[in-house]
Simulated scan of single mutants.
Amino acid sequence: MVSPMLSMNQATIKHADLRQTLDTLTQTGYHSVGLWREPVEAIGVPEAVRMVSDSGLCVSSMCRGGFFTMPEGPERRAAIDDNRRLIEETSAFGCTVLVLVVGGLPQGSKDLAEARSRVAEALAELEADALAAGVTLAIEPLHPMYCTDRACVSTLDEALDIAAPFNPKAVGVVVDTFHVFWDPNVLRSIARAGREGRIAAYQVCDYRTPLEADPLLSRHYPGEGVIDFKALTQAVAATGWHGDIECEIFNRAVWDTPFDEVSRHVADAFDKYVAPYWPAE
Rank of each mutant, 00 (worst) to 15 (best):
M1Y: 15
V2H: 15
N9S: 12
Q10M: 03
T12H: 12
I13T: 14
K14M: 08
K14E: 06
L18G: 04
L18K: 05
R19W: 08
L22N: 13
T26W: 08
T26V: 03
G29A: 07
Y30C: 02
Y30F: 01
S32K: 15
E38W: 12
G44L: 10
G44K: 08
R50T: 04
R50D: 02
D54W: 11
D54Y: 09
D54N: 14
C58Q: 09
V59K: 02
G65C: 00
F67N: 13
F67R: 08
E72T: 06
P74R: 14
R77V: 10
A78E: 09
A79V: 05
I80H: 10
N83Y: 06
R84W: 01
E88S: 02
S91D: 01
C95W: 03
V99L: 01
L100E: 06
P106L: 12
P106C: 11
P106A: 09
S109Q: 13
D111Y: 14
E114S: 14
S117A: 10
S117R: 04
R118I: 11
R118V: 09
A120I: 11
A120G: 14
A122M: 02
L123W: 02
L123R: 00
E127P: 01
E127H: 01
D129P: 02
L131K: 13
A133V: 03
A133H: 04
G134D: 06
L142T: 07
L142D: 05
L142W: 15
L142F: 09
H143N: 06
M145I: 12
Y146C: 11
Y146L: 10
D149P: 14
A159M: 12
A159H: 12
D161F: 02
A164I: 15
P165E: 01
P168T: 08
P168N: 06
K169Y: 09
V171T: 02
V174A: 09
V175E: 09
V175T: 13
V175F: 00
H179L: 04
H179I: 15
F181R: 10
W182Y: 11
I190M: 10
A191N: 07
A191K: 05
G194D: 04
E196N: 14
G197D: 09
R198M: 00
R198C: 07
I199G: 06
A201E: 13
Y202M: 02
V204I: 03
Y207I: 00
R208D: 01
R208Q: 05
R208K: 13
T209N: 13
D214F: 04
D214T: 05
L216C: 01
L216N: 07
L217W: 07
S218N: 11
R219V: 00
L232Q: 14
V236S: 01
W241V: 06
G243V: 10
E246G: 10
C247W: 05
I249W: 09
A253V: 05
W255R: 13
D256K: 10
D260G: 14
H265S: 08
D271L: 09
D271Q: 08
K272G: 05
P276Q: 11
Y277C: 11
Y277I: 06
A280K: 12
E281P: 15
